[in-house]
Amino acid sequence: MSAINMNWLASAEGESLVHHFYVNSSKKRRFYGILERPSLPTSIEEVTYKIFMIGRSGVGKTSVVGKLAGTLESNNYTETNGIRKTNVFWPVKIWDKIVLIKLQFWDTSENSIKKYSHILSACKDKVDAMCSVFSFDDASSFNDIPYLMNTMTATKEKPANIVIGTKFKPWSSCVIDDAQIKEFEDKWKVKVIKIDASKSSIRSEMFDCSYQLNAICNILWNRDKEFISKLMGQS
């Protein structure tokens, strides 16, 4: 069972908070600068996590972040140049407590990392999770994932592993089938988070990605819990 209530946003309590995240009365998500946060009661605790997006060029890292932040505008592709950092505020209910999670997504591209040495070190510094992204229509990007996850275990922060598969189409067959995903999940003990970033629905956009955001928060929460219990075990 997950500590985070995956359906909480749709509950009466969740719904009562959702409007704080919208622009006025529209269903468009509000974007926050570094000096701002949603106007929730200050009693609600805020927890910040840094997530580094990795994966081949063109798999959809930038689109995923845009989707999760509610800022995705177009499906045009331009390679990401330099570092783009996006803060996403997400309210979750953990056991019986509401927590405001601030996810800091650090997005760059393989080419930027290759060209400029400071980019990789800035992205890896004090990172809480590595988010490896592959695309369901590109088998080689999926085969890369174990390698991507391994490159990180060396970093001293022991970041959590998040794996996201983009361009997921639940009703048609993908290049990567269910069995492969299952095998991967069992072997590496991570659940693949599936998303179709380009899809938009009539529902308010926040509900469209609530599953994915809750899943990410859950992974981060479990990592913290493990970390704490290890600390307690040592003393």
Binding site: I34, S74, N81, G82, R84, T86, Q104, K115, I119, A122
Partner: peptide, 11 residues
């Protein structure tokens, strides 16, 4: 001309 994000660091 970029889509919105919190912080950019572009060479």
């Amino acid at each position: 001309s970029e889509s919105i994000c919190t912080t950019y660091d572009i060479p």
